[in-house]
Amino acid sequence: MIVWLRIVVCVSLLVLATLLLAPVQLFLLWRNGPARRTLPRLWHRIACRMIGLRVHVHGALDTRRPLLLVANHVSWKDILALGSVADVVFIAKAEVKAWPVFGLLARLQATIFVAREQKRTTGNQVNEIGARLAAGEIVVLFPEGTTSDGNRLLEIKTSLFGAAAAAVPLAPEGTVHVQPVAIAYTKVHGMPMGRYHRPIAAWPGDIELVPHLMGVLREGAVDVDLVFGDTIAYRADSNRKQVSREVERQLKGMLLARLRGR
């Protein structure tokens, strides 16, 4: 009974915060001012607090721009965690735009939607990402293309790094800074999570959203580590596959270290 009461209170407060902040964000999006990038961070912090997601940062966000953050993808909670520590914009598949609730929230955050199966529009989508990077926005890319079980890094799709290449000609110094970020869910109720409990945090594509969300709310205490790696300079003469391999190397190393408690 106490657990369900806590869930009702947390959800109610989150809905209230959303209803209060959404009109302000809509106005900021209409004005296209810099504040439209900062207000979502407040909402993400509130959301993390309400669902019991405790974020621990290791390393530091690079201060140089343009900046492309490249992270492994475990769950929708990745967005809350990253969005609570930096003014970021995400790249998401086009289907997310039509999702109930999540689609609206994504639009309010000025998410960049891409339709990967529509080859005719790929160039326009990449150019939009490049323009947003060049404008000083911190763009988050999940190069695995889907969510994992949280225990490993899936294969990285090198084609997605075309966003960095598109931003290079627009960058003031001809350089796009690519920074790997490992996302590791490590504890539940303060205890090491381990493989058995990691489904609490992970959201692979074959698990329905609502039951998973209720499971997270019932637990109410999950720790996630964000590990910022070494930034890689992406220039006109950079090799996309080499950059991808270096990102993959860093992500695997950082993820494994945090999952092992190092």
Rank of each mutant, 00 (worst) to 15 (best):
P169F: 08
G162Q: 13
E144Y: 10
K157H: 15
I183N: 06
T175G: 00
S148L: 06
G150M: 10
G145Q: 06
Y185V: 00
E144A: 07
Y185P: 10
D149F: 00
I183K: 10
V168F: 08
P172Y: 01
A184H: 11
K157W: 00
G150Y: 01
T147H: 08
L154V: 01
V176I: 12
V176P: 00
E155I: 12
P180V: 05
F161S: 01
E155W: 10
V178L: 13
V168H: 01
A182Y: 13
A182L: 07
A166Y: 06
V168I: 13
L154M: 14
P172G: 07
V181C: 05
R152T: 14
I156Y: 13
V178Y: 11
R152L: 07
I156T: 09
A167T: 07
L160V: 12
E155P: 08
E155Y: 06
Y185L: 10
A166Q: 05
Q179S: 14
I156D: 08
P180A: 14
V181R: 04
L160G: 03
I183V: 15
G145C: 05
A167F: 02
T158R: 15
L154C: 04
L170A: 14
R152M: 13
V168S: 00
F161N: 01
V176S: 01
A164W: 10
S159P: 04
A167R: 03
Y185F: 14
R152K: 11
I156W: 01
E144N: 06
A164Q: 09
G150E: 07
G174K: 02
A165E: 15
T147K: 05
T147P: 01
A184E: 12
H177F: 12
T146N: 14
G145T: 05
T175M: 00
S148F: 02
G174Y: 07
S148R: 02
H177N: 13
T175N: 06
G174I: 04
F161P: 02
V176K: 00
A165Q: 15
A163D: 07
V181F: 11
T175H: 06
Q179F: 05
L170S: 07
A163H: 03
P172T: 03
L154K: 12
T158M: 11
P180E: 12
E173C: 12
V181S: 00
I183W: 12
S159G: 14
L153H: 05
A184T: 09
T146S: 12
N151V: 04
G162N: 13
N151W: 09
A163I: 06
V178G: 10
G145M: 12
P169H: 09
G150F: 03
S159D: 14
D149A: 14
A171E: 02
G174P: 07
I183S: 11
L170W: 03
E155H: 15
A163Q: 05
S159V: 10
